[in-house]
Design a protein around this nucleic acid. Sequence first.
DNA 1: AATGCGGGGCG
DNA 2: CGCCCAGCATT
Length: 353
Amino acid sequence: MAADTADRFVAPLLDWFDRHGRHDLPWQHPRTPYRVWLSEIMLQQTQVATVIPYFLRFVESFPTLPDLAAASTDQVMAHWAGLGYYARARNLHAAARRCVEQHGGDLPRDLDALLALPGIGRSTAGAILSQAWGDPFPILDGNVKRVFARWHGIHGWPGTPAVEKQMWGLANQHVRHVPAGRLADYTQAQMDFGATQCTRAAPACLTCPLADGCVALREGLVDALPTPRPGKTLPEREAIALLLEDAGGRLLLQRRPPTGIWASLWTLPQDETESGLRTWFEREVDGDLDAAEALPTIVHTFSHYRLHLQPLRLRKVAPRARVGDNEAQRWVSRAELASLGLPAPIRKLLDSL
DNA sequence: AATGCGGGGCG
DNA sequence: CGCCCAGCATT
């Protein structure tokens, strides 16, 4: 990366931090390795405002790392109760005891030694090294990933190994351009910037100090980046719908139950299997189902599954007497369709006829 | 109701 | 490696 590219990121970010960053967080005064570590573990999956009172109670009861190591599991868990992700507290306690046994009662100032402690990964280790000692190690948390995706115009979900690897490379490039003595501020600046300026839903691009050089802003992709997590592969379901028309061109619609999919909407007679649909058809309708015309399959995605709906069209059906209008079923003219609540894909299908 | 979130642990 | 998980806040 060219030096000017990095400067256009690091320098304005540090300048922004001096004016708008958070300088009065409890773990910044004093900014000891133990307090930085504790805050970073608490800040995993948890926002600053939630963490602060827990942090204060924690350091009140366990002012130093050996104090924490000497505490009982029950004491530690009691101080964590309400924060969630209780494995964090278990790892914290175990790591504290190991630091007493192996590192003289304090956190090691060494990347690999930190990574060997339970609950500390690469990003948390970088946060500790940079904030506690001013060592030039980057972080890569959710905030940084979001800012990188936008500023560098990186496509692809940041959770994929390829994107994450690319972002660690960028993080390492940027951190080399941070002036000595400003590593702690740089780390805090990135977290503050992502949390208050380059937010997920409503980034303040109009006042952004990094607008110059932001690829997403230039290309109109701020809302599209970072690429969202790919939807878990949805279960696929199939169903057959019957599009029945009488001699007058009216359509047979059924009302859905008040709960579940398409609750209380009007839809075509539908079943998961052809045999099930045939059973209903032969009981209710006078006609030849095998004469039905297969229309193009409709693919509709719900929140929890994808439906492949095969419409079968059968015209000039003569309904048996019992297939008349009632609360759950009625023959509907084209003119009436507009006034009924229909699922979007069904309405689209009917409008296309 | 869905989404995001660092790291651990699994197969 | 890819995948799932944990608990809460936010949207």
